[in-house]
Design a protein around this nucleic acid. Sequence first.
DNA 1: GCCCGTAAAGACAACGCTGTCAACCGATTG
DNA 2: CAATCGGTTGACAGCGTTGTCTTTACGGGC
Lengths: 338, 338
Amino acid sequence: MSRITIHDVSRAAGVSIKTVSRVLNSEPNVRSETRARVLKLVEELNYHPSLSARSLAGRSSNLIGLIYQNPSANYVVDLQKGALERCHTRGYRLLVHPCEGTDLSSVRDLAGLVLESHLDGVVLAPPLSDSTEVLAELQKHRIRFVRIAPTVDLGAHSCVFMNDVAAAREMTEYLIALGHERIGFINGPPGHPVTEQRYLGYTLALRSHGLDVDPQLVDRGEFTFDSGLAAARRLLSRATRPTAVFASNDDMAAGTIMAAHEMGLTIPSRLSVAGFDDSYVAQVIWPRLTTVHQPTYEMAHQAADMLFRSLGDEAPPKSVEIPYRMVCRESTGPRPAN
Amino acid sequence: MSRITIHDVSRAAGVSIKTVSRVLNSEPNVRSETRARVLKLVEELNYHPSLSARSLAGRSSNLIGLIYQNPSANYVVDLQKGALERCHTRGYRLLVHPCEGTDLSSVRDLAGLVLESHLDGVVLAPPLSDSTEVLAELQKHRIRFVRIAPTVDLGAHSCVFMNDVAAAREMTEYLIALGHERIGFINGPPGHPVTEQRYLGYTLALRSHGLDVDPQLVDRGEFTFDSGLAAARRLLSRATRPTAVFASNDDMAAGTIMAAHEMGLTIPSRLSVAGFDDSYVAQVIWPRLTTVHQPTYEMAHQAADMLFRSLGDEAPPKSVEIPYRMVCRESTGPRPAN
DNA sequence: GCCCGTAAAGACAACGCTGTCAACCGATTG
DNA sequence: CAATCGGTTGACAGCGTTGTCTTTACGGGC
């Protein structure tokens, strides 16, 4: 039982392989009668064109890459789903490529991956979307790419993003509106694109409401639960404890909630906690987390779409902003009377 | 700047393309001196062989598929990581394929996927690993596969699994040992491979300790947080409330904990909750969840390994059992004095 | 009635590699 | 010294498509 090829179909239909090829690629200049006959045979013989042969012979491989380096499972899955959905409707296939480790070797591998697999283009998720090495490598090989949530070289390439500054600012202002004045902040790791932005939003909100940015109220984590737990423990043991903590992602917010539980601080009556991302954990922990919905799925979806458009020489917009959404749940409340 | 091919390397090294090919594939009968020269040029020219050409010309595509249909992000990511790691060390590439929807079309597509992409084989995750349609389709096309956690046709093909029955039994016995006698159970959806097994473990434990299986204490969910929450609400409002609830996965256990919080039942002093999977949420919710660690990563890793071995005609073991591990945290405690 | 334009279809050479087989070499053997 | 052999290498034909160019058929305009 060997593979069914275009030759089998062409023989059965009594046409040349080129005609079958034309039908399969929806090219013009095929009589509708012939087209129908070929299509019927394709169905009957259960013929599936070889992608390898296609990408070898043609200009396109109908394969794009999704490149990320992110520890958060939910983020990754949303990314994949968004990109996959778009790939599916456009007849593309997706190769996922988690870049583990920050070493340079994986960066060099990247161009290799694209070349080996004949990728038509790649979608770059943060923090890789800001890596100058990665960008340089891709450009050197003239590889098309779309970046998700970059913070540097905005104008240079297509990208899709959300306004992290405005979102962080709005969340902080929400806490201020609830009466909080000592608002702690758990920052992300330095160097990560969104870290600066979310912190900036936090400080802008404070300043515009006449509040000082107290370094005693700012700590730092690695965007992981454990690091958030540790940072929150430090923050909540300070002499002047904050009445609200804004963690710059949900995992660290979950850590903060755990720390509060440990210390017997009821949420939100004695401590308000806000997160960022609206990941799965936000809906699952007690109390449910007030957070900013990051449109990861939509961004990946849009990024893939822009990539396809640029592959089709259909000059895509330089950048697309996807709106975020405040999600107010039960982890935040008015400042304690005290 | 066009692509660098095997011809460029062979020209530069002053050998035939076949010799370069031999070097790249670690074939014998190449003088070590020649081999070194070729390798050096490959490095210098930054040559990357085309996988399309390879899979078209050769017998193997060095590409395997990971096929799943699972809503849980953490499970999926663990699966991917396990398979990817093994692929990486063996020089294979991984095509992930989430089968959304249970419709037959995706099943028919499956063989198409394999044929189109020249996959050498596939790893099948539950619940697809039990789908007779999928298995039939793969066999019809003589496609090699390894199943993860199947429950039917065990002997027929290679598979890797864990002992869900024993694990569920051990967890139930752990609760019994804590003094609990009214132990609720939240079952999974009918038809899913592990549903029956975990329930069986639960009943076996009860019976062997002289306890009845009270249908009033058993409810059902869909392995999702929301369904677990709903089931727990029902379960905890019954006349004779259980003193412990064993949810057959972590997401539903998280829902149970949320329900308990809603009803003001402190955990574990008034209600013990146990889960299954040891997914990310288990470590993040308050109190941390007592659960069974499901070795998802290891199973995927092992499955990929077995697939590679069977591709290399190195008759792999028919089935491999990966040990589970009880993880006792703070969500379980002695039966309330009452 | 002839020429030309255009739609429809085919012939054939790539694409970049591997598989097969043949060729060559120096060394061993009878 | 011819025959043989194993290690080393190369020539060349695919693999299953698409791209390019050519051929054929069929109308319409003069």
